[in-house]
Amino acid sequence: METTTDNGKNVAIIAYIFFIGWVIALLMNNEKKTSLGSYHLRQSLGIMCVGVILVIITWIVGIWILSTIINLAIFVFWLLGFLSAIQGEMKPVPVFGEQFQEWFKGI
């Protein structure tokens, strides 16, 4: 696995563009694996998974203000990950970022 290359940075950025971007980034990274691309694929997947789980929980509970706060937090995590990818850095997102690296280490 290479460290930082243009391909790795492109994969890292594309990984944050919705689910279809994540799939495209995964395919690109599988062609030529980079540590930066793999790192951000794991971060992005983790943000998506946690976001879906929390949205489902807030729908079940039915508390509108909680849903709004969670959506805002997920957006902030996405933005922090995206900015880290643009800068070519491997900074974990707050709260679960380190766990995402462990949970999705197969990527």
Rank of each mutant, 00 (worst) to 15 (best):
S67I: 00
P92M: 08
I14H: 01
W64F: 12
G51K: 01
W59N: 15
V11K: 10
K32R: 13
E89G: 11
M48L: 15
I53N: 04
V95R: 04
I17M: 07
Q43M: 05
F100D: 02
E89S: 15
Q101T: 09
A73P: 06
V76T: 12
T34M: 03
F77R: 08
I86Q: 01
I56N: 06
L72Y: 05
N7V: 05
T68P: 00
E2Q: 09
A25Y: 00
Y16D: 03
K9F: 02
P92S: 14
M90K: 13
P92N: 10
V61P: 03
M28V: 05
T4D: 04
S44I: 05
F75N: 11
S35A: 07
Y39I: 07
Q87K: 15
F104D: 14
W64E: 13
Q101L: 06
L72W: 06
A12P: 07
I60K: 14
I57M: 03
L66F: 12
F75V: 12
M1A: 12
I63H: 14
K91M: 06
I65S: 10
Q87N: 15
V11Y: 13
T68A: 09
W22M: 05
S38H: 07
G88A: 10
R42C: 07
M28T: 05
F96S: 03
W59A: 10
S67R: 03
W78M: 09
W22C: 00
I56C: 14
Q87F: 14
T4A: 04
S38D: 15
K33N: 11
F77C: 07
L80I: 11
P92K: 05
T4Y: 03
K9T: 13
I63K: 12
L83Q: 10
Y16E: 02
P94Q: 06
K105N: 12
V50E: 08
I63Q: 14
N30I: 04
E89H: 14
Y16H: 08
V61F: 03
S35E: 15
G46E: 10
F18Q: 11
Q43P: 06
S35P: 04
Y16G: 01
L45S: 03
G81C: 03
Q87S: 14
V11D: 08
F19H: 01
S84M: 00
I47H: 08
S44Q: 02
K32E: 14
T34A: 02
I70Q: 03
A25E: 00
A85L: 09
Q87W: 12
I107L: 01
T58A: 04
I47A: 09
I69W: 08
T68Q: 07
G62H: 04
T58Q: 06
V93K: 05
F77G: 03
V11T: 13
S44F: 05
M28G: 09
L66C: 09
F104R: 13
L36K: 09
C49F: 09
K33Q: 14
S38Q: 14
I24F: 10
S38P: 08
G88D: 12
V11C: 06
A12T: 11
V61I: 10
M90C: 09
E31Q: 13
K9Y: 05
E89Q: 14
G106C: 00
S38W: 07
I13W: 00
Q43N: 04
Q99V: 11
E102L: 03
A73V: 13
L45F: 06
G46P: 11
L79I: 15
I74G: 02
I24V: 15
T3C: 13
W22V: 02
I14Q: 01
E102I: 13
K91C: 00
I60D: 07
H40Y: 07
N7G: 00
P92Y: 08
W103A: 12
